[in-house]
Simulated assay, not measured.
Amino acid sequence: MSTSLPSVATTMNRQRDFPQLELVGAWLEELQARTVFIVADPEGYAASGAAGRLQGLLGQRAVTLFNNVGRPPLESQVVAGVAAFRAAQPDVMLAIGGGAALDLAKAVNHLAAQVVDPSLYLRRKPGGAMPGKPLMAIPTTGGSGAEATHFAVIHADDGMIHFVAHAHMRPQCVVLDSSLLGALSAAEVAGSGLGALALALESMWDIQANEGTIGYAQEALRLLMEHLENEFYGATVEGRAGLLRAANLAGKSADLIAPAFLIAAAGALSVRTGVPYGRLAGVLLLRLLDYNRQVSTADCADLRGPNTVQMRFVHMAQSLGVNSAEQSVERLTQMLGALQIPARLGDLGVQLAHVQEVARLLPSKLYAHNTRRLSPQNLNLLLSGLI
Rank of each mutant, 00 (worst) to 15 (best):
V82G: 06
G385N: 09
A40R: 04
L366T: 01
T64H: 13
S364F: 00
M160I: 07
A167T: 15
G239E: 03
R344I: 05
N292D: 11
L289S: 03
K365D: 13
S253A: 15
G242W: 03
R279V: 12
T35K: 15
L269T: 08
V283A: 04
E326Y: 12
N307R: 15
I38L: 10
R312L: 08
V39P: 03
D17G: 11
R61G: 05
L286C: 08
G215F: 04
V92M: 11
L269G: 03
L382N: 00
A129E: 10
R34N: 15
L31Y: 13
Q60Y: 01
M160E: 13
N380L: 11
V92L: 12
V115K: 13
L58Y: 00
D41M: 04
R304M: 01
L228K: 11
G239S: 08
L201I: 15
E226I: 09
I138G: 02
V116N: 06
F313L: 03
R240E: 00
L320D: 03
Q208D: 08
L345Y: 05
A196L: 05
L221T: 09
S144I: 09
G239P: 00
F18P: 00
G282T: 07
R272F: 01
F313A: 02
A83N: 12
A247L: 09
L249G: 05
E330L: 15
Y277T: 12
A167I: 14
T297D: 13
E326R: 11
D299E: 04
Q310M: 14
F151Y: 14
L65M: 12
L104A: 04
V39Y: 01
G132V: 12
L256V: 05
G70F: 01
V164Q: 01
P72A: 10
L54G: 00
T213C: 04
F37N: 04
E22K: 10
Q89I: 11
P90I: 10
H162R: 06
D157E: 11
G97A: 06
D299M: 01
L381S: 12
Q32T: 13
V355S: 00
A83M: 09
N248M: 14
L285A: 08
L122K: 02
Q318I: 14
L221M: 14
V189M: 05
C300H: 04
R344M: 12
